[in-house]
Design a binder for these strands. Sequence first.
DNA 1: TCAATCTAGTTGAGCCCTCAACTGTTTCCG
DNA 2: CGGAAACAGTTGAGGGCTCAACTAGATTGA
Lengths: 158, 158
Amino acid sequence: MSATRWLSDDEQRAWRAYLEATNLLFDALDRQMQQDSDMPHAYYEILVRLSESPERSMRMSELAIATRSSRSRLSHAVARLEERGWVERVECPTDRRGQVAHLTDQGFATLAAAAPGHVEMVHRHVVDPLTPEQIKQLAEIGEAIVAGLETCSPDDGE
Amino acid sequence: MSATRWLSDDEQRAWRAYLEATNLLFDALDRQMQQDSDMPHAYYEILVRLSESPERSMRMSELAIATRSSRSRLSHAVARLEERGWVERVECPTDRRGQVAHLTDQGFATLAAAAPGHVEMVHRHVVDPLTPEQIKQLAEIGEAIVAGLETCSPDDGE
DNA sequence: TCAATCTAGTTGAGCCCTCAACTGTTTCCG
DNA sequence: CGGAAACAGTTGAGGGCTCAACTAGATTGA
């Protein structure tokens, strides 16, 4: 138990600006994706990952790690995506416990239709307001924060 | 309808790093706050705003604007906070439609107890991994993004 | 004055997420 | 081999959020 390290004015300012920007931005992204493509932004990310994977398929646990989501969250999400016919679960041939999530053609088409609107949002609300210099800085800042967090994820059973 | 402006490699890298950092960070903050103080991070923000306001009170709509949340969200949130005895609703003397949210002593005590753990998280996962230079950059980036978004909020009836 | 309109805030259904508990499978190792 | 532990994934309850619909008070203007 040690004395609390409070934030300096600069740190406070940065943290609040970051928090505010992120809340506004993520809300806007979610709203856009929900309206235009009837899914939350997190589901879009799942489809993106699958689309970039060989065979458009991934083991559930790999996919959970790739999307930084808990197994439980992913399981619920894939169930929803399967209902819509965008993803299907396939039994894993090498491990009978395992499931492989596979992006269907319909899912791919949905993703392709959703992408332009989403990218446009990112462009308008992130790329455009920032200078190329700031884009670079943002990448480095993000990576530094990820590196500092990497060791403490959630994931149901940990 | 014009051609999609896709993201360059640098822009892609920045966006993904930011997204990943933010998802991890916000999950971690929420988890910490939930475990240590039995509330989501968003509720903590509400208590903070109230604590900084004169009389520890704010009209519901001001509070909604200050916390960047929809009226509906705030209404649900304050209902929860009231159940716990941390906030109370008071009728507004000048407008009979209005409600004033007031942070109770118990709410203030809860906030005071929650603050050190929260600040420590922010320190460890945001301030520590970044250089003072990057803290400054983050503030400017956040502010630029907020400025670009300011004009398009949600808020139930808009 | 009084109806139309706007504003403040609430409500409930439905969706997503978390947490903890659970099933079934594989691995480890004595 | 065979039991314990680890692993893969699912499930359901409970809570927070969004959206649309709603109540009720304030404002506006003919």
